[in-house]
Simulated assay, not measured.
Amino acid sequence: MAEFDYGQAIGDARAKYESIAKALDTDRLKAEIKDLEQKAAEPGLWDDPDNAQKITSKLSAAQAQLRRLNSANQRIDDVETLVELGREMEDADSLAEAQTEIGKIQQDLDDMEIQTLLDGEYDERSAVVTIRSGAGGVDAADFAQMLLRMYLRWAERNGYKAKVMDTSYAEEAGIKSATFQVDAPYAFGRLSVEGGTHRLVRISPFDNQGRRQTSFAAVEVVPLVEATDHIDIPDTDIRVDTYCSSGPGGQGVNTTYSAVRITHLPTGIVVTMQDERSQIQNRAAAMAVLQSRLLVLRHEEEAKKKKEIAGDIKASWGDQMRSYVLHPYQMVKDLRTGYETSQTQAVFDGDIDAFIEAGIRWRHEQRRAVAAEAEAAEK
């Protein structure tokens, strides 16, 4: 076994730190924190709770990011000193401790590097996620509910605020669809790599003959719209239907026409909302989701034009982006990145950060490939 090269490892860590600090622009980060602190100190901040929540959330995230950067820099200095002392004293325990710490620093730097890759137009937004059951009958509906739980647990593990906005329950088990919102800086940038078709292979708990079943669910992720997005939707372009909410919620919810369904006539996009008790609140929430989807549609049309110049790339965000196999073996594998794990229960309990980070790196490489092809096509 080759001897651990402390100098090389520390040098690599310092180079990666400097690259991250440059990409995140610490001066800009400090200026942003100062600006957000001034806004957070304004007397009338909480007159608009939604805006106050956004400001305090962004401030907390920016402060945490700066602390993490400063901590990484100090830890690199400290471990370098520890290595020097260990060598001078010929202390094997100190050197072993230093090697362990270098590994931890490298992992933290890898995590921070992900932040530098979230540079898409809407990556810093909150996210609206819709899960729909696909082929597979009751197993697919059950799988859709498993995915909903997985993402809500992921949000909880990361300290993100998540709110289920609409749920359509299946007749026998599971859900036909569900929409939820994750409010956190860069929630869209992270969750957007989860968009696509998910596949589950298992012994069906709903089959009395115990046969293996393959089922599918689709995940759609859109950024939350903001007032500056200017997505105008004329009243003549939408049809609004109201109906009684379904599922848990008590008599006050289930016997009043508080649920809202909005159909965007030009595109056929349908949005339903039933989380709130008030029809007015549900309509406002549904319009926000509709605007988000139209925003993504507009962005996709713009991207399509650029893609026509660059030509198509082999990798696709299409069908079966991830497989969850529970029988005859245990494996969750992302078919785009190749990342896989046999810890299936941990994944369904929300431990999906490694998949998300691999997806972000994969997406970054795809964007680079498209940019390079477009540049070559223009020459």
Rank of each mutant, 00 (worst) to 15 (best):
V289I: 13
V289Y: 11
Q291A: 10
S292R: 07
S292K: 11
S292Y: 08
R293M: 10
L294V: 03
L294W: 05
L294T: 05
L295Q: 10
V296D: 05
V296Q: 09
V296H: 06
L297P: 07
L297T: 11
R298H: 15
R298F: 07
R298G: 15
H299T: 12
H299R: 15
H299I: 06
E300T: 13
E301V: 15
E301I: 08
E302S: 10
E302M: 14
E302H: 10
K304V: 08
K305I: 14
K305H: 15
K305Q: 15
K306Q: 13
K306Y: 12
K307S: 15
K307Y: 12
E308Q: 15
I309H: 06
A310L: 04
A310P: 04
D312L: 07
D312W: 04
I313V: 14
K314G: 12
A315V: 05
S316G: 01
S316C: 03
S316D: 04
W317A: 08
G318S: 02
D319Y: 08
D319E: 14
D319N: 14
D319Q: 12
Q320V: 13
Q320D: 09
Q320M: 05
Q320A: 11
Q320H: 11
M321P: 02
R322A: 00
R322V: 00
S323C: 12
Y324V: 10
Y324A: 07
V325Q: 03
L326Y: 03
L326D: 05
L326A: 11
P328Q: 04
P328L: 03
Y329E: 07
Q330N: 14
Q330A: 07
M331F: 04
M331T: 07
D334E: 02
D334I: 00
D334C: 02
L335I: 01
L335Q: 03
R336M: 01
R336V: 02
R336Q: 03
R336Y: 02
T337K: 02
T337V: 06
T337A: 01
G338E: 01
E340N: 01
E340Q: 10
T341F: 01
T341Q: 01
S342V: 06
T344G: 05
T344W: 04
T344Q: 06
Q345K: 13
Q345A: 07
A346K: 09
F348D: 04
D349R: 11
D349C: 04
D349I: 13
D353R: 03
D353I: 13
D353V: 11
A354H: 11
F355I: 12
